[in-house]
Write a protein that binds this DNA or RNA. Structure first.
Lengths: 102, 102
DNA sequence: TATATTTGTAACCAAACGGTTACTTATTTT
DNA sequence: AAAATAAGTAACCGTTTGGTTACAAATATA
């Protein structure tokens, strides 16, 4: 299943998982230790992160190593940045306007 | 009700509404014309955007003018940008590694 | 004043979300 | 070979989401 990064990032637990994984790649249990919720709940969130390509999972014996993979963030970044431009332009216009008043 | 900008941005229709409003401030009906879904559905989405402070709504006679207000995007922007740094650092490390091989 | 317009709200619905517990499977360890 | 460990899966549950239609309220227009 393919999933929208926006949707994957909507949940605070999933964003926290990303934060945890930005330290280093980790197994499912190691990740789960950072949270109060059950391990199956973490498994579900990891699946969603995987479906949105924000992490990749590599089987290592009986463990599964989860690695962050941030490419999909660029979509989010670009979208938001576009409005930063919009915002700066509005400030520019205000600036022009104020200059005209001088 | 207060709402997480992440959650507000999770829905594609709401992101489109933001795009529409970035052109210019518009009334509810004017916004709704851009979409297939019913006007009450748009009303609901506008409420969510308002609750996350991404738009503000001003009553003007029987109409309501919706104006974009992008401050909450900074939270999203900062969060994502932090991982851009993480990503660039990884590329740096790769670069160092490749240089070492020379 | 009667009518049309803009919008919100209520009630409803199916699907998705985010969690739980119980169980299974595969792999290590003893 | 038996026991322990890591992790997925299934079934379930209450809440939220995102839409619908029907209706009500306020304002503007004829």
């Amino acid at each position: 299943m393919r999933r929208d990064p926006w949707q994957a990032l909507a949940d605070p637990t999933r964003r926290q998982i990303i934060e945890v994984l930005s330290e280093k790649a980790q197994t499912v249990n190691a990740i789960a230790h950072n949270f109060e919720i059950s391990r199956p709940a973490i498994s579900k969130q990891l699946k969603i992160l995987e479906e949105s390509s924000l992490i990749s999972i590599e089987q290592q014996g009986r463990e599964r190593l989860c690695t962050l993979s941030l490419e999909p963030l660029s979509e989010v970044f670009n979208w938001v940045q576009q409005y930063q431009h919009f915002w700066l332009k509005k400030l520019d216009n205000l600036d022009d306007y104020l200059n005209q008043m001088e």
